[in-house]
Amino acid sequence: MSARTKTAFPFLRALDLLVIPMILVGLYFAYLYAPRETTMGDVQRIFYFHVGFALNCFLAFTVVFVSSIGFLWKGGRAWDDTALAAVEVGFLYCTLVLLTGPVWARSAWGVWWTWDARLTSTLLLWLIFASYLFLRTYMAEDPRMRRYAAALGILGALNVPIVYYSVKWFNTQHPTTFITQRGKLDPQMAVSLRFCMLAVLALAVALFLKRRAIGRLEEERDRLMAAYEEGEIR
């Protein structure tokens, strides 16, 4: 069979050695290196990772959109494994966005949660992909499950631009990202933000590749299992 599956994934393992130090350096940048924000105080430090999680969550759901279309169009389990891996990572990041956001909101706005456009639409995205995972578990035995999941993945990912642009379309209290107004941002803050986003992206890629590899291997295992059982019967 392919040589890739015979090796014990040196590449995927090496990713850990890249990602974990990156996250630690990112934490250093966010919590020690970046200067204290004057109006919001230390709580503003959340934002370095919050932004990274949010942008990579959108990125993951974009991957879901493309690979779900790929699965319905071309077929083949590789597309579906890609979509599932991206959903898991995107969902995880979406959860982290929803956990880190309220901590900041409590200090800046005085409440954990408001029904603001950006917050509500992020929650909605989380609910949609939670239902995607429900579908996959509830219909695990159905041979059509992967196609159903792809359809739901497409419908869900269509909401991503709405979440992204909700800040512009509706009146919202949510701050727009600082990247677009680089001039105003303190250079040390800018460096920290960029590094944290990179670290979070690296983590997302590592998690995604591992999850996808598991899916690919499970297909191979199922195939071998079927071949083995067939041999037993004969």
Binding site: L124, L127, A130, Y138, R144, L152
Partner: peptide
């Protein structure tokens, strides 16, 4: 989609409402 499932009565609202909210 959900009518193929044994749990269709449960699954349909779970799938439908998040997409219906907007």
């Amino acid at each position: 989609i959900s009518s193929g499932s044994r749990l269709r009565e449960v699954l349909l609202p779970l799938l439908l409402y998040p997409l219906w909210v907007p």
